[in-house]
Each structure stands twice: as structure tokens, then as C-alpha cells.
Design a protein around this nucleic acid. Structure first.
Lengths: 267, 267
DNA sequence: GCAAAAGTGTTGACTGTACACCCATGT
DNA sequence: ACATGGGTGTACAGTCAACACTTTTGC
């Protein structure tokens, strides 16, 4: 028998009566928050939005944006509200992708009280600098490659774990869904799309085969019938432009290939 | 600005002070539960464990087993504890698979108070009848095919949604992981494994090609070097036996094929 | 012309599917 | 012998990675 059932039975209460007479001294305070792993590719770098904590605990460390779920809010509503607050955007851009990641509830993950965090992942195109009108030091995008480096941010609570899970979710999700397009603004070229895959996966893709695969997957992208504007220093042929198609899943998936057991790292 | 931040700022409190002085009249009571979708294949039927509610609200309806997360428990611990209680098993059988599904938090999903439910899916082999020693009417396995039929159970709260999500998770997870083996006790034959796929997906699989695919995926199953015991009425060649291999993922995946737009339903 | 990037074609290896066929067992 | 299910062989179509090649642009 579980402890609360025992407590309830000892008090001679039905479950309903027990809950109606909810006593915070007996059921210690519990909070539910949402934390958002906002992933984006800016300046060619796969990055995550973090905010610096101005208060204890974990003061000065970097944390995921998030906050309490309010009384009448669904989880998704809480996420959208927090996202708007943290990015400083009145309206989130179209095409942004939001999905629930998982819930983190280790008893000791927050020293103040029992906090369950329902984590979400967002895939967003390049957004303006965060928190417009606020202290620029308090929120910034960190390249995920720097997260584990000594120069990277020190992360608060269990947010390093959450971010790792979110990155893995992103890497696998763009294999079998068209959601890599959520990192781009429309219209986009296939090279831009390929750059997203290469940056998120960290592996180069053959341009010609990539193109063929993307175009053969029907509903992944649709041509807009325009040509990209001319390019910078040495030219090169301008690319055709595309927008997101109606497909929800990709079959066959695009595959990331791990670099075998070869020693050659990138760079 | 979010409402709690405003409230905190008006009171001149830091976040820490605010939380330390947590006031249940201001932050109305919130509960976190785990709900478990225990999936299994028994008597050849893909089934889910449900318990009949003996109390209001939703009295008499069928609900997922679950309960409150206790003060010092991690989520996974709460699930294991509840699973043990509901199945009546001292020790869960080896090979059982447990994973977090997602968290459901609609404000109105439970009329008593704000309840966030962290749902888990479990894949289990045939287990003894639930809740040994308790009223047999209170817990039973329902075939998932009956859930949407008029003779099926009326489901409490939002548990129909949770079960739907869990079933879809199971159907997709056995495509790209070896977890279909979690529905079987070792050792098992390839026909038994194929029967799991056919029952969970609801589509027949070609026996010879199924065999080849499974055996070529290295680490999916490993032969134990034994032959299944003789069979019932009309014989038939006895099958070789296998146990679970070390693989974590299957590539290429086994694919369920939707029945095109053909009219022929099963049966 | 040359560099650079977009885009096309070709080839050989591999995979998936359908289906014919052989094997081992009970009656 | 024959029914039943386990297990193998084969052949065709589709897919994929590699890489040579053509096209369109800026300088």
C-alpha cells in the first residue's frame, strides 16, 4: 500500500474528501514549471537560448527560460507565454515548432521545493536578439558546441541534461520529419536547408544527393518559382527557392551517418 | 511580464524569498501524479491494464493505474512502486520496458484540483491476473481493440487520450527498437515475435521475409541453440528459440505498412 | 577565363518484396 | 500421405552513396 493511501485510510477519508481537505503541511508544496529549450541556427551556429540567473539559488549560472504554469493555463499556453516574454516578441514567427520533450522531477533538482519541470523544445528561425529593451547580458544564444567547453556557460540545476535531451531530440527529429525547415525563414534554398542539417548533425552532406533526396520526398518542400538574389564575393549560380510543403513525416528518412570509427574530427 | 513575477515584484520579494514564503492560498494546490499505460499481449490480444474507479469523480469508469508522486520519490520510482501495487507483483519480471510518455496538464482534466499527470508506457510480457488477493472486478486487462467499441470500458478523465498516445508510441517504437521482445518471455520463437508485431500493428507480416529481416539486424535476437517443444493438434516443424540481443536500435527499421486505401478490414 | 556554387547523370552495391519451394513434425 | 508451420532460394524493382559532369553566376 502506498503511503498517501495509508494516511487517507487512517483518517477515514475517501479519496475525494481527502483531496478536498488538501493540507499543504501534509502534502508539502509542489510546483510545476515549464522550461523551454529554444533551438535555432544563427550565424551558422546551432544555438540555444539561455538566461543568466540574477538570484539564488544558482545565481550567475545560465538557465533555460521558463516559469510557473499558472492556474488556468494549459502547459502549451504557459510555454507560449514564456516564449513571448523571453524573446521579447509580441508575436512568434510562423513556422516555429514547439513540442513537449519530457518531465524532470528528481526530488533534489531544486533546493527550494519540489519542482517538476515540463520541458519543451522549440525549433525557431533566426530571431532578433532576445529580451529587447532589457539588459543584454541577461539572455543570449549560446552555440551548443560551446556548452561543454571550459569557456562555455555554467548551467543551473539539471538544465545540462535537459539541453542534451533536447539536442538529441532535434537531431533525430529532422531525420524523419520536415522540421529542419522550422529553422529557416521562407523562402529558402536547398543549400540553406542543407546547412541546417550539417550544422545540427555536425556532419557534411553531399550536395547533389541531398538535393535529390529532399526533392524526391514529396511534400517536404515546394518550389516558389523564384531564384535567390545574387551572391557575394565570387558569385556562383543563384539557387532556386522553396517553402515548406505539407508533409508531416519523411519516408525514407534522411540519415545522419556517424563518422564510423575514423579519427578525423571536423576543422 | 508574467503574473507571478508581477506579484512578486509588487511584494518587493526576490524569487527566493517569494518561494520560501510559499502561500497555498495564493498558489492554489497542485498535485503531480504518474499514470501508467501497461501494455501487454495476452491470449493473442494487445491489451492495456485498467482499474475501475470505486469513488467519485468518475466513479465506475475505468482509469489508468497510477497515483501521487511522493515526497522523496523520483518519477521513475513512483511508477515502479505503483506498478508493483497494481499488478500485485513483488518483483517485476525482467525485460519489462518502461518509458516516460508525456505530461498532461489541462486545467480542467480533474475537477478536484489542478493535477498534472506524468504518463508512462510499459511493455510487459504476459503477467498473472492483476491485483492478486483483491476484488477481481477492480482491475483487468482490456484489449485495445475494444476500447472504442460500445461494449468497451468507459474511460475516466482524459485517459482515452493518454492511452491513444501510448498505443501510437508502442506501434512506432517497435519499428526502430527491439522492444517488441519486451512483450515476450525468454526464450521465444520468431513466430511468437512476429505475432507480437502483427497484433500490435494490426497488419499481417510475411513470415519468411520477417524472419530474414529480424535475423539480419544484428543484436536484435540471439539464438539460444534450442528447439521449441512440440506443438498441438497437427504438428508442424518446431521453431528455433531466441532471446533478446544487445541492440538498442534497429536499422533499417521494420516497417508497418498501412493497408493502402484498400477496403478490406481484418476479420 | 577562372572560381564557386547550383544542379544533372551514371554506376555498382545493396534492400525490400513477392512468391516458389524444401524441411520437420503430428496425426 | 497430408496438413501445418518453420525455414531457404530467387528474381525483380527500388534506393543509396560516390563521383564525374554541366550550368550559371561574380570577378
Amino acid at each position: 500500500m502506498s503511503e498517501p493511501a495509508e494516511a487517507r485510510n487512517r483518517a477515514g477519508l475517501t479519496e475525494t474528501e481527502f483531496l478536498a481537505g488538501y493540507d499543504p503541511r501534509r502534502f508539502p508544496p509542489v510546483a510545476v514549471t515549464v522550461d523551454i529549450v529554444l533551438l535555432t541556427v544563427r550565424q551558422g551556429r546551432f544555438s540555444v537560448l539561455l538566461v543568466r540567473r540574477a538570484e539564488h539559488p544558482e545565481m550567475g549560472k545560465w538557465a533555460l527560460p521558463g516559469g510557473f504554469v499558472q492556474e488556468h493555463e494549459d502547459l502549451d499556453e504557459a510555454v507560449l507565454r514564456e516564449l513571448g516574454e523571453e524573446t521579447g516578441l509580441e508575436q512568434l514567427p510562423p513556422g516555429i515548432h514547439l513540442e513537449q520533450l519530457r518531465t524532470y522531477g528528481r526530488p533534489d533538482r531544486d533546493p527550494r521545493m519540489r519542482v517538476f519541470s515540463v520541458a519543451y523544445v522549440a525549433f525557431a528561425p533566426h530571431l532578433p536578439a532576445p529580451r529587447a529593451g532589457s539588459d543584454a547580458d541577461l539572455a543570449r544564444y549560446w552555440p551548443v558546441a560551446e556548452l561543454s567547453s571550459p569557456d562555455g556557460p555554467r548551467l543551473a540545476f539539471d538544465h545540462a541534461t535537459i539541453i542534451d535531451d533536447a539536442i538529441e531530440r532535434a537531431r533525430s527529429k529532422i531525420e524523419y520529419t520536415p522540421l529542419a525547415t522550422a529553422f529557416l525563414e521562407e523562402p529558402f534554398s536547398l543549400s540553406e536547408l542543407r546547412a541546417i542539417y550539417e550544422e545540427v548533425w555536425g556532419t557534411p552532406q553531399d550536395p547533389s544527393n541531398f538535393r535529390r533526396k529532399v526533392l524526391r520526398l514529396e511534400g517536404f518542400v515546394v518550389p516558389v518559382g523564384e531564384i535567390a538574389p545574387p551572391r557575394g564575393p565570387h558569385g556562383g549560380r543563384p539557387a532556386e527557392l522553396y517553402r515548406r510543403g505539407p508533409a508531416q513525416v519523411l519516408w525514407p528518412p534522411l540519415r545522419r551517418r556517424e563518422p564510423e570509427e575514423a579519427p578525423g574530427e571536423e576543422g
